[in-house]
Every structure is written in structure tokens, then in C-alpha cells.
């Protein structure tokens, strides 16, 4: 197997006195779509936040392409999230006042792309996700499924190496969820983008190449080893 692109080793993280991660380790390979499943409160989102450099783990290491994220500066982490990573949450990552096309163009603008070029690329991505013709709408004027596809376009527009998706279909009905997942996995496979997919839904996890299950802050396999 290839060398992992992103590795979290023995990650611990507590929210106040509540432990969320208790020594979870996970590897993500280049171009791989990995589903992280588990019950509510098993630490899935916290794992994603640690791996994406959104929060620092209390203990353990996160390594992305040979770089230690748990030790990187905030500026570097922000830059990584802008350029190498894309994130999709259940909702909330679109700016409500910006139109669909400006929301998608935003990461490009942040990287210094001129407005017109950024908009053109954003429109191409919207087209790819089947939301062409909705460029001028704002998030509040779209359906949940459309908004999530716009979010995907925004996450992928910079050509990231890893997309972090936290319950991307959590607020959608099954048909819209299917369209979002199909769009995400197709694009990711085409561009060889790795995806870390957090979900509690087995049917969503089935879009991935591989699945790991978190239980009480550790991977289920590790939990079994600890129990023995």
C-alpha cells in the first residue's frame, strides 16, 4: 500500500472534562475515500477537526504529507485549509449574503485570483455539480440539496488534496443526499482527491472505499484490542 497522505496517531482530545478522542489512530491514503462511522458522541467530528488542523489534539500527532499539523502555526494551518484541504459541513459553510457563484469563488479570491477568472471557474464547478442557472441565488433561496452541492463546489474549487466532509447529507432527504454523495465521490475519484467522510449512515458510508468505526473515542478494532 502507498504511504499515507494524512495520519493521525493516538489522538486524545477532551472538550472540557468530557473526553471526545481517547487514542484514536487513522490513516488516509492519497485518493482514498474513507468513511468514519460511529454513534453520536463517539468522537467523529472531533477526529475530523483534529485531522483538518481545525483544532489541535491534546495528545498524539497529525501528519500531512510529512508535515506535523499538531505543531504547525495557525497561519500555516489556515493556508493549508485554504489550498490543500476542502471542508464540507452539514450546513453553515456558505456565507448567507453571498451568491452561489461568489461563495464558490471566495477561496479563489482569497488566493489572489482576479474576480472575473474566479467567477468563471466557479461557474464551471457549479455546472459540474448540476447547479448551473442558480449562480445568482443566495444560500437561503436554495434547497438544502442545492446548497450542499454549492458547498461541494466551494470545497473542491481550489483542487484540494483532501476533502473533509462532516455529515454532508445530514440535513438532506435521501434522494438529495444521493445526488450530493454521487457528485462528491465522482469528482473526488476523477481528481484523485482523498475524502474523509464522517457519517452515521451506512448507506452514505457505502460510497467510501473503506470504513472505520469509532466507539468512545477510539477505532472499534482498537477498542477490541484494548478490551482483550
Amino acid at each position: 500500500m502507498s504511504t499515507p497522505l494524512l495520519t493521525g496517531r493516538r489522538l486524545f482530545k477532551a472538550h472540557g472534562s468530557t473526553p471526545a478522542l481517547r487514542g484514536a489512530s487513522v490513516e488516509l491514503h492519497p485518493g482514498e475515500i474513507l468513511a468514519v462511522t460511529g454513534a453520536s458522541g463517539s468522537g467523529k467530528s472531533t477526529l475530523l477537526h483534529c485531522l483538518a488542523g481545525i483544532v489541535r489534539p491534546d495528545e498524539g500527532t497529525v501528519e500531512y504529507a510529512g508535515e506535523r499539523l499538531d505543531e504547525a502555526s495557525e497561519a500555516r494551518l489556515g493556508e493549508l485549509r485554504r489550498t490543500e484541504f476542502g471542508v464540507v459541513f452539514q450546513f453553515g459553510q456558505l456565507i448567507p449574503e453571498l451568491t452561489a457563484v461568489d461563495n464558490v469563488a471566495l477561496p479563489l479570491l482569497l488566493a489572489g485570483t482576479p474576480r472575473q477568472a474566479a467567477r468563471e471557474r466557479a461557474i464551471a464547478w457549479l455546472e459540474r455539480f448540476g447547479v448551473r442557472g442558480q449562480e445568482a441565488l443566495r444560500p437561503g433561496e436554495m434547497s438544502g440539496g442545492q446548497a450542499q452541492r454549492v458547498s461541494l463546489a466551494r470545497a473542491l474549487v481550489t483542487g484540494p488534496k483532501v476533502v473533509f466532509a462532516d455529515e454532508p447529507t445530514g440535513a438532506l432527504d435521501s434522494l438529495s443526499g444521493e445526488q450530493v454523495m454521487t457528485a462528491l465521490t465522482h469528482t473526488a475519484r476523477e481528481a484523485a482527491t482523498a475524502v474523509l467522510l464522517i457519517t452515521h449512515d451506512a448507506q452514505v458510508a457505502a460510497y467510501a472505499d473503506r470504513e472505520v468505526t469509532l466507539r468512545d473515542g477510539v477505532l472499534a478494532a482498537e477498542a477490541a484490542e484494548v478490551a482483550r
Binding site: 493556508e79 493549508l80 485549509r81 453553515g92 459553510q93 471566495l106 477561496p107
Partner: peptide
């Protein structure tokens, strides 16, 4: 605040 936190998580610099 939640939207802003999501923006920051997606890499929009706080300075912006």
C-alpha cells in the same frame, strides 16, 4: 458565530 466559525474552519483568514 456558527457561520463565522465554519468560514474560519474552511480557511478564510480571520483578518479578512
Amino acid at each position: 458565530r456558527r457561520g463565522l466559525a465554519a468560514q474560519a474552519a474552511a480557511g478564510v483568514p480571520i483578518a479578512v
